[in-house]
């Protein structure tokens, strides 16, 4: 069996401050939860290799600062993203309300070619906590209104659904990447992107 070439996928995690972006990322990558994380300033990132549909994929997960005033500085991190993960806290209604603004801002700043088709995944985090403020139904409705975004309810603390969510994230990102060769309009740095797509096509020709 021919080994396929590695694929690099860039995933951006967005959401209000304190919804648990850093915890989710660390739970997924390092399989541990800590309440000793510092507030993320600027951005942080981790990588993880996963196998999706027989392919080895390197997920490059970017964790961003959540405070409103940093929202407009995201442009530096967003470029070349393959998937965007939106996170809210199911116990904090405000974090749900700002999802629209995070999504819009991402689409504006990253300007993917097909904004409507760009893969998003929504995570409702902290389901281990009571009381719930946002019902599953409400979150799902939002997802439907946004072109059927996949929705997962997670708990970074109890490692609930985190693995599944990121699997789906990786798959969506991968589908997206193989579907459209050129996700982005006119980016000054297409280096990374073209590299990966080249690898991608090489991989395909190998398999043939």
């Amino acid at each position: 069996m021919a080994t396929r070439k590695k694929v690099l996928l860039k995933v951006i995690i967005l959401g209000d401050s304190g919804v648990g972006k850093t915890s989710l990322m660390n739970q997924y990558v390092n399989k541990k939860f800590s309440n000793q994380y510092k507030a993320t300033i600027g951005a942080d990132f981790l990588t993880k290799e996963v196998i999706v549909d027989d392919r080895i994929v390197t997920l490059q997960i970017w964790d961003t600062a959540g405070q409103e005033r940093f929202q407009s500085l995201g442009v530096a991190f967003y470029r070349g993203a393959d998937c965007c993960v939106l996170v809210f806290d199911v116990t904090a209604p405000n974090t749900f309300k700002s999802l629209d603004s995070w999504r819009d801002e991402f689409l504006i700043q990253a300007s993917p070619r097909e904004p409507a088709d760009f893969p998003f995944v929504l995570l409702g985090n902290k389901v281990d906590l009571e009381p719930r403020a946002i019902s599953t139904k409400r979150a799902q409705q939002w997802c439907q209104s946004k072109n059927n975004i996949p929705y997962f309810e997670t708990s970074a603390k109890e490692a609930l659904n985190v693995e599944q969510a990121f699997q789906s994230i990786a798959r969506n990102a991968l589908t997206q990447q193989s579907q459209s060769v050129d996700l982005y309009n006119e980016f000054p740095d297409q280096i990374k992107l073209t590299n990966t797509t080249n690898r991608n096509s090489n991989g395909d020709s190998c398999a043939c």
Partner: peptide
């Protein structure tokens, strides 16, 4: 510049005076 790095790294350096 090619990597688009300068703005990525510097924000946390500046804002926390390297503390973070």
């Amino acid at each position: 510049e090619q990597l688009g790095m300068i703005n990525i790294i510097s924000l946390s350096w500046f804002l926390t005076i390297f503390l973070s």
